[in-house]
Each structure stands twice: as structure tokens, then as C-alpha cells.
């Protein structure tokens, strides 16, 4: 109950802050519409020709990229929000005041990012809703329960990358290059805008290390083809393996970073 109350307090605080910048808040909503519309017309342009690499996903580019763009935003928010939370608390001067409360630092970092995940979820829903209601994408076969499970597993994997990135920001202050590297590689190799089958063989192998590859593969199979959990089991295994390896690494790195800044007395520095 206590953690839920704190979680609600963070969401309220961040929502109030967000809506206090009204133009930026409205701009985000408009941007979502423009982005979906841009992909719709791009898909319309290439839609005349048959693309073999899209066949496993129903053959139509627009639903393929809609799912890719919508769910890759979870990667963006995971990689950035934890580190951004630390960075903005350092710059605003609130980090030391937050750490001086009885709430453990790991809870503060996670709870500080909750609003970003809630806002991203709303944006994903909005993206899909624009696709369905404005541009008539069909999700009639979708396995929503399976997709929700993939989503939870994906967020956990992405969050571990985010905590690694946050640890680097906590310790070294400036934005963490590893976060940008993972994000860049994920967009290049993870199958957000195109199927990974169009990549060279070595890049397809490298893509298997990235959680977004497995996440989007499973998500598309479930939302576009209505695949069962069993049919998406290889992608689910990929996500699980990533979580098992990255989880302890991210927790250890955060603990070491916190120990370092306490030792150096640089909690309030930026």
C-alpha cells in the first residue's frame, strides 16, 4: 500500500508539472497524429508493390510500422527516463532532498519514471487508435492477452537498460553513451521500420542480442497474425534471457554508482 501511495504521489507530481507546460503537452498529442499520418502516406506510396519480407506480418507495411513505432517508444522511455530523472533531479537540486527521505534510492528512481511509462502507454494507445479509427488498420485477429504479456516482459528488459544508463548518469553526470548506443542500434537493427530479414546476415545475428528485436517480433505476430504464446515462444525466450543477464547487471551498477556518489559527496553536483 505504501509503495502504491508513493507511486500515486509521483504520478500526480509529474502530471501537474507536465500540464503546467500546456503548449508542449498539446504539441505531443498533435505530433503523434502527424507521425502516424506520415507513416500512412509512406506506406501508401510503397503499398502498390508486393514486399516478400513483409509477408510474415500480413504483407501490408502500415500496420507493420505502426506496431513498430508505437511499441519502440517504450524503449525510448525506458532508456531515457531513468537517466533523465536522475539528471533533472541533479540539475533542479532535488536529488539530495529526495535521497534524504526514508524512501530507498532505487524506489525513487523507479517511481520517478512511472509517469513517463503511463504517458507512453497513453501515447501508444493513441497511436494505435489513430491507426484504427482514422486509417482503418485491422486488429481483429489480435491476441491482446499475449501482447500484454510481451509488453510487460519488454518493459522489464528495456527498464534494465534504462537503469544501467541511469547509473552512468548518477556516477558520471553527463548523458550516458551506452544508452544512446543501445537506442541507436535498436532502431538500426531491431526491426522498428523494416523487417530484420532485409539486413545482412551478421547484422541479423547481432539483432538477436537486442531485446527490441524479440519484443517487436512477438508483438507483431500477436497483434497482426493473432499468434499464440507458443507460436511466439522463441521471441519470449529471447526476452527472458536478456532479463536474466541484464537484471543483476543493472541492479549492481546502480548500487555501485550510488555508493560512489555518496563517497564522493557529489549527489547534488551536476
Amino acid at each position: 500500500m505504501l509503495i502504491l501511495r508513493k507511486c500515486w504521489a509521483f504520478i500526480k507530481k509529474d502530471f501537474r508539472t507536465d500540464i503546467s507546460y500546456r503548449i508542449a503537452f498539446a504539441g505531443q498529442l498533435l505530433f503523434t497524429f502527424f507521425m502516424v499520418a506520415a507513416f500512412y502516406f509512406f506506406a501508401k506510396m510503397i503499398g502498390q508493390s508486393s514486399i516478400p519480407s513483409l509477408a510474415p506480418y500480413g504483407g501490408d507495411y502500415f500496420p507493420f510500422v505502426l506496431v513498430g513505432v508505437a511499441f519502440s517508444s517504450y524503449l525510448d522511455v525506458s532508456v531515457r527516463s531513468f537517466a533523465d530523472t536522475i539528471r533533472s533531479a541533479q540539475v533542479l537540486g532535488t536529488l539530495e532532498a529526495l535521497i534524504a527521505t526514508p524512501t530507498p534510492p532505487w524506489q525513487i528512481v523507479i517511481l520517478s519514471s512511472i509517469y513517463s511509462f503511463v504517458a507512453t502507454s497513453l501515447r501508444v494507445v493513441l497511436t494505435l487508435a489513430i491507426g484504427v479509427f482514422v486509417f482503418h488498420v485491422q486488429f481483429s485477429n489480435a491476441n491482446w492477452a499475449g501482447a500484454s504479456l510481451v509488453l510487460v516482459l519488454s518493459i522489464i528488459c528495456f527498464a534494465f537498460i534504462g537503469v544501467l544508463s541511469a547509473s552512468a548518469v548518477l556516477a558520471f553526470k553527463r548523458a550516458d553513451p551506452s544508452g544512446w548506443l543501445v537506442q541507436g542500434l535498436s532502431y538500426l537493427l531491431g526491426g522498428v521500420y523494416y523487417p530484420i530479414s532485409v539486413l545482412p546476415h551478421w547484422a541479423q545475428v547481432l539483432a538477436q542480442v537486442l531485446p527490441i528485436t524479440h519484443s517487436l517480433e512477438a508483438m507483431r505476430k500477436m497483434l497482426l497474425n493473432g499468434a499464440s504464446l507458443e507460436q511466439a515462444s522463441s521471441s519470449m525466450t529471447g526476452l527472458l534471457l536478456f532479463a536474466i543477464v541484464a537484471g543483476p547487471m543493472s541492479i549492481a551498477s546502480f548500487w555501485l554508482a550510488l555508493k560512489r556518489v555518496r563517497k564522493e559527496g557529489s549527489l547534488g553536483h551536476f
Binding site: R16, T17, E96, A97
Partner: peptide, 14 residues
């Protein structure tokens, strides 16, 4: 309870 020397340690938009 701690009163820090940093007067910025609050959320400015709240």
C-alpha cells in the same frame, strides 16, 4: 529532518 543549503531543492512548477 534536514534543511539543506540548497534553496532549489523543491519542484518549481508545483
Amino acid at each position: 529532518g534536514v534543511v539543506l543549503d540548497d534553496e532549489r531543492s523543491f519542484f518549481w512548477r508545483l
